[in-house]
């Protein structure tokens, strides 16, 4: 029995990505880091509205970035450091 599959069903999307999800996954870091263009951002947001798994990946990646930016403690600079830099510079000609 012959099965006919039309070209439309077999078409691989442009730009070398097999699926929209792959394309969106590739944009994920750029979106989170504020590096995506407006068009990329729009494409990304539209996809997330219809894809739960990409929506979840986005949430997880945002959480990860937040863990570093919000929870990693900053170390306190020793008070003597600025003074010793100034002193060394004054000695330097």
């Amino acid at each position: 029995m012959e099965t006919r599959i039309t070209d439309e069903y077999q078409r691989v999307s442009e730009e070398g990505y097999d699926t929209e999800c792959e394309k969106v996954a590739n944009m994920l870091d750029m979106v989170i880091d504020g590096e995506a263009s407006t068009e990329e951002q729009v494409y990304f947001n539209n996809h997330l509205e219809k894809c739960v798994s990409c929506f979840e990946s986005h949430q997880k990646q945002k959480l990860l970035k937040g863990l570093v930016s919000g929870h990693l403690k900053r170390v306190i600079v020793p008070e003597s450091l600025a003074l010793s830099i100034k002193a060394k510079i004054q000695e330097t000609l």
Partner: peptide, 20 residues
């Protein structure tokens, strides 16, 4: 020296954190 201190010393905190 004054210009150096004014422009570059404010970066001490992030720089030390990066070094650490």
């Amino acid at each position: 020296d004054a210009r150096f201190e004014a422009e570059l010393l404010p970066v001490l905190d992030p720089l030390y954190n990066f070094a650490y």
